[in-house]
Design a protein around this nucleic acid. Structure first.
Lengths: 254, 254
DNA sequence: GTACGTTTAAAACACTCGTTTGAATCGAGG
DNA sequence: CCTCGATTCAAACGAGTGTTTTAAACGTAC
């Protein structure tokens, strides 16, 4: 274990930066080794394959984020405290925003990297992420369940999905917010972002548990996704509110 | 303009399917032309370049989705109607879920394609999407502003960003929801998904405009986006509620 | 039938990718 | 000193990429 293990470190640092900037697939091993100032073969020597390097970057970056999530949740689950939904959401959402990459990279790069991990194309990178994430997921799921005792478990899954989506999008594509607001919002102001994101998500998680009506009838979902409103006779209480009626399709035939 | 323009069509169809399945970068022109049953050179002949093909797929797929969004919004903005936030959100969110790809592809593929467009790596594909999306964005922004008259415009931008994020994630990565819920949720049941997504988003959009406390003091947001809480002397009311205090970092040094 | 513009066909081009190879280099232990 | 394992280096390999080229086939108008 000579001192030159920093070759490995520099490789990880360079890869982390480039992955954040351009994505995993679009970054070549040659770019990485050049940025790290090491030989081309180093990535295969130290990590076996490029995917091994990706996994190592995942690992190194994700570990402290998830650790901080669990630490924050621990503090919220002291036995004398009653569950605080907003605090739980903050404990889950804030760490990736506040994470610094290697070599104290800018917030911007850490955010983008985390976003890219979330929207990982499809490779086994996804599997690595899931593995890293699974404990966090379980802990927060039960925390949410405690804070929202009247919410059925299935609804909770859906909402956690939405929550993760809003978070991931904000992390992955800050530029879009900038463009959307004409420059009025600064997506790299982490605290300002969290002050908006957390209340948004808290309200969403607290929304009424079932889609308004659902008066007496059973579920009665038509299994066929294509034919909408197949059960024509029981449309009374549903057609009263026309929330989900779709307008005509407009498609050109050329 | 012979009948064999269907070569172009079959190219678009095959590309749409493969792009949805594997992504844009991971799909080669050879795979596309093989699936379409046409010659390799056809893509360059008809679309100039692979990016041209991608743009054409974007165009053909996005147009009806955005058209339907605007149509639905038109119906909601009849002069005698008062703004209905939930209906506006549905008008924005539902069309991509209900879109069918070419050749009546499964909902699954259309969803994935739209999700992939949203999380387009970074190419000018993004620009194409933005161009297609800009009109929709403007229309819905003012619709939201009418439905939420007390919400400052900047907060609205943030929330639209979150909204788009939750929608895009649900479209792009239905598998994750499946895994998250242990198979309890069916992300391809479009109506069930919308019945959960829309209330979630509606509640989020309606959340209190400013982050809870803000009791007696004036707004007092530090104008500088980078240096958070630059005005150090006035930190009193902030440290009282420790909502956003971060716990210690945990990072291994190996 | 012949000529013409459009479309298809097969082959090759130039390039980048991730990975492997085999020799050179280094740093400690005998 | 020499040895040995670990690391670095330059060079090449084989496969895959998007694109171009050149010629052949097609349908239509003259």
């Amino acid at each position: 274990m000579t001192v030159s293990a920093d070759s490995k470190q520099r490789l990880l640092d360079a890869a982390e930066t480039l992955f954040a900037e351009r994505g995993f697939h679009a970054t070549s091993t040659r770019q990485i080794t050049a940025a790290a100032g090491v030989n081309l073969a180093a990535v295969n020597y130290h990590f076996g394959t490029k995917d091994g390097l990706i996994a190592a970057v995942f690992e190194r970056f994700l570990r402290p984020v998830n650790a901080e999530r669990l630490l924050a949740l621990d503090a919220l689950e002291a036995p004398d405290l009653e569950p605080d939904l907003e605090a739980i959401i903050t404990a889950f959402v804030a760490p990736p925003f506040r994470a610094r990459g290697a070599r104290d990279q800018h917030v911007e790069r850490a955010m983008r990297l985390y976003g890219r991990i979330h929207s990982a194309p499809e490779a086994h990178a996804h599997a690595i992420f899931v593995q890293q994430f699974d404990t966090v997921r379980k802990r927060f799921e039960s925390a949410f369940a405690r804070a929202l005792p009247n919410l059925p478990r299935r609804e909770l899954h859906w909402r956690m999905h939405f929550l993760i989506g809003a978070m991931a999008q904000t992390l992955a594509d800050p530029e879009r917010l900038c463009a959307l607001s004409g420059g009025a919002c600064d997506p790299y102001d982490v605290e300002a972002t969290l002050e908006r994101l957390v209340p948004f998500l808290t309200a969403g998680m607290r929304a009424a548990s079932l889609p308004t009506q659902r008066a007496g009838g059973a579920r009665k979902r038509s299994g066929n996704g294509t034919t909408r409103r197949a059960s024509s006779r029981k449309t009374r209480s549903r057609s009263s509110r026309s929330r989900f009626t779709r307008t005509r399709r407009a498609r050109r035939s050329s």
